[in-house]
Design a binder for these strands. Structure first.
Lengths: 127, 127
DNA sequence: CTACATGCAAATGCTTTGCAACCTA
DNA sequence: TAGGTTGCAAAGCATTTGCATGTAG
């Protein structure tokens, strides 16, 4: 547990915005001005691998990270990329519907809502 | 409607494997040896923008393309990246559950199952 | 004829990796 | 002190873009 890793965990826990690696980098650098991006990526990968945090594989080009490792759904703004938790309970029965209907061994599922966040909704109205 | 665009549409319709841009490139090049990757990307973007095909924003690093522009779900092999259609009907009521519960203007949702394809399941067993 | 499309190559953006120095347990 | 970790920089991979040329309508 290095200072870098500890700080990464801390900034994640202080941020509900599901930051990207770059955003984590900026936040950590406020406290440890010499961290490198490589260290950020390595630790985010390591922490999500060990289940302490969650790597979000959602639409768009960049990955985001969630301090909450529990399964839950998200909603993403298609315009600005903002991501929030979706207030809906996990659908536990969903995978049952696929048993016998697919040739795959099912591991899990991800559900992502897309929409416009308040700020972008407002802009869209005025256009 | 150039020969390039026509051929891209044709190879997509002959392929149920949800190919990546690179795979489309390889398939088109069998018929038009001089196509460029840039043309592939430009046309895939254009065709999905006009609703003739569908761009899949699913987990993993690369985008895949689907000749079928209708909403449907997919299942992806976490080991080899193979993607198939998931035999489950779209959940039309899902977004209703979020109305009033989120600050977003909801546009839609994507649901992706993950698992192991038959080939990768077999390998996993023998490990 | 004119606007759009193409091929080529360079550029971009995000992420990963090699390596020598450094630090933690 | 032994092994993991860091900073730095270069490399990697998918995708996008600028530009001169070519082609469809």
């Amino acid at each position: 547990m290095t200072p870098q890793r500890k700080t990464i965990l801390e900034v994640l826990h202080q941020d509900n915005a599901h930051p990207s690696a770059d955003e984590v980098y900026a936040l950590v650098r406020e406290r440890l001005p010499n961290v490198s991006l490589g260290t950020i990526y390595r630790n985010l990968e390591l922490l999500s691998g060990s289940g302490e945090i969650q790597k979000l594989e959602i639409g768009g080009t960049i990955k985001r990270y969630d301090w909450n490792p529990k399964k839950h759904y998200h909603i993403r703004c298609t315009r600005c990329g903002r991501v929030d938790d979706a207030p809906i309970a996990p659908l536990k029965q969903l995978e049952n519907e696929l048993y016998g209907a697919t040739i795959y061994t099912i591991i899990g599922h991800t559900l992502e809502f897309v929409g416009l966040c308040p700020a972008c909704s407002k802009q869209a109205d005025s256009v």
